[in-house]
Design a protein around this nucleic acid. Structure first.
Lengths: 311, 311
DNA sequence: TCACGTATGAAAGATATTTTCGGCTCGGTG
DNA sequence: CACCGAGCCGAAAATATCTTTCATACGTGA
């Protein structure tokens, strides 16, 4: 373990050269190379150059590989690593990998452009993921927690909960319903406008009606909400247009975010993501408030499903 | 250079297990650990846990060091590295260094705590949004674009597309179907297992069957996929367990990420987010490939809906 | 309880890294 | 112009690290 450091101390730069930065440089490698270049010998410069020029590529090479690439020897590579402040090549290589990763991730946020017809599939994945993350952040930032709290409070003690949504929003309505049912509440999703209205008539004070519509102007969803509203139920609207028609009949409005859309990226995609986050928040809020009954109910439904899984 | 990879292929997961991601994961390591954890042995889990928990720390250790730290042997460490998709420990270590560097540059993962019963509603929103963003990032990082590309190619030219999913995954199946229908493809979601099987019998070469199941072991979904597979259809599995039973009958496996769950945050929540992203990518990919017909179809369906919106 | 298959770690074997050591070049000097 | 010395350089030995093999222990189902 006791290393013989004789040689390094005999280098032209003097005793100081090797340890300019006591902690081996993290990312300032290119700078270090430039700084130390004058005190390097020709072969070492070649190595340093290669390393600074293509960190990722060099990280993939062994000492021998890098030595061959630069037309030098293993010993020179190791000496260069030492000069740059690392105990040996192994550690330089590790730092190189880190640097490469940073450069890689730093390049990432360049994806502000829209999805094009000829984008490679990997770009599609990156862009969609990025956009949906953005949508989530926007939604969380724009969500009115007071309104949400009120909606949660009403839902937690409701006799029954009706959820209206058609098209893509219909799936969100079903998602919410499924989860509420799982914690023992009485919830029902309606995507048939006629049945929705027919059912809305049954609602009364203490019940909760939730309408989900991105546009805020979907008649099929507004109508049952209006009926529920007029029958005294607590009404909630989850919409991207808080000033839309649906808001007239809503006691509480939860706003979803609206992202730019395009031909290949229909609005339904980001509105759905946004709606689901709101619905999740609503659900978790209710689950908190009804924890006494919710916890065992969740456990029970989990149990019930276990046997449907194959070994 | 020709490695003897006999042992890795003898793992319980079968031939598929080791190559979940052909390109060794760069940043999707934590996600990959969670995904593969179930198929790991106890000792391997200890290693994987250490690696996922402290990438920077582990990157500084040699095989022997990590083996000692986790109370296992070098062999186990190497085996774990292999399972995670790297040729050996050396490469895992490099990836670890990269990951550490990324974490370093990226801000501290502020919110790691779970959602508690008494969290104020604002915290719930923040935590859920953060978790779902994380899930999206993990999914995107872990998605095999080759498999995705293959699935897209098959779906784009399919005579018909059947999608199977029950429970929460059923909604995802419907979401995909809705969108595919919008661009003029023939797609059908099945959540009734009997009808699904009955329909699967009709499939033949050139058709595509897609099974969506988080657990990878939902019999109700595997069965129709098996039938479709045996009738010559191209089969795709979207699952969180790429080594699960569903994979046997899948030509292409698309892996969704698995996030930690808790009482108040059922697994269904993040798996749904993950599944939706995958499904969106699939959809956009198909839309690209069929752009000629998809664009007018999208416009037409948009038109058709316009009159259902109130002034 | 036994038999079987799997998981595991010790140690041998293979690679990669580090060190040693001697040749070589280059610039100065008699 | 020959000689000398300082320091650069790489081949190869020595060491550390990683990988593979193999025998054993363990758990599991019959």
């Amino acid at each position: 373990m006791t290393q013989d450091v004789k040689e390094i101390f005999a280098l032209p730069g003097g005793p100081q050269a090797g340890r300019a930065g006591a902690p081996p440089a993290p990312a300032a490698l290119a700078a270090k190379v430039r700084t130390l270049a004058p005190s390097m010998t020709r072969s070492m410069q070649r190595v340093a150059e290669a390393v600074a020029g293509d960190p990722a590529g060099c990280a993939a090479l062994t000492v021998t590989g890098l030595a061959e690439l630069t037309g030098t020897s293993e010993a020179t590579v190791v000496r260069t690593a030492r000069l740059l402040g690392y105990p040996g090549y192994r550690d330089l290589r590790l730092a190189l990998a880190g640097l490469a990763a940073q450069q890689q991730s730093g390049r990432a946020p360049a994806i502000t452009t829209d999805i094009a017809v000829d984008d490679p599939i990997a770009d599609v994945v990156a862009k969609l993921a990025y956009d949906e993350q953005q949508t989530l952040a926007d939604t969380a930032a724009g969500l009115d927690t007071v309104q949400l709290g009120a909606a949660v409070a009403a839902a937690a003690v409701a006799r029954r909960i009706d959820v209206y949504g058609v098209g893509a929003s219909g799936l969100v309505a079903q998602d919410l319903t499924q989860k509420l049912l799982r914690i023992g509440l009485i919830a029902q999703a309606h995507s048939d406008p006629h049945l929705a209205v027919t059912n809305a008539v049954q609602l009364r004070a203490g019940d909760v009606a939730i309408a989900i519509t991105h546009s805020g102007s979907t008649g099929d969803v507004i109508e049952p909400l209006r009926v529920a509203f007029e029958h005294g139920a607590t009404t909630v609207a989850i919409t991207g247009r808080p000033d839309g028609a649906v808001a007239q009949y809503a006691d509480h409005v939860l706003t979803t975010s609206t992202a730019r859309e395009s031909e290949l990226r229909p609005a339904a995609m980001s509105s759905r993501t946004s709606q689901l986050l709101v619905v999740d928040c609503l659900f978790v809020g209710v689950a908190q408030k009804t924890y006494e009954t919710a916890a065992p109910a969740l456990a029970a439904s989990y149990e019930a499903l276990a046997h449907r899984h194959r070994r």
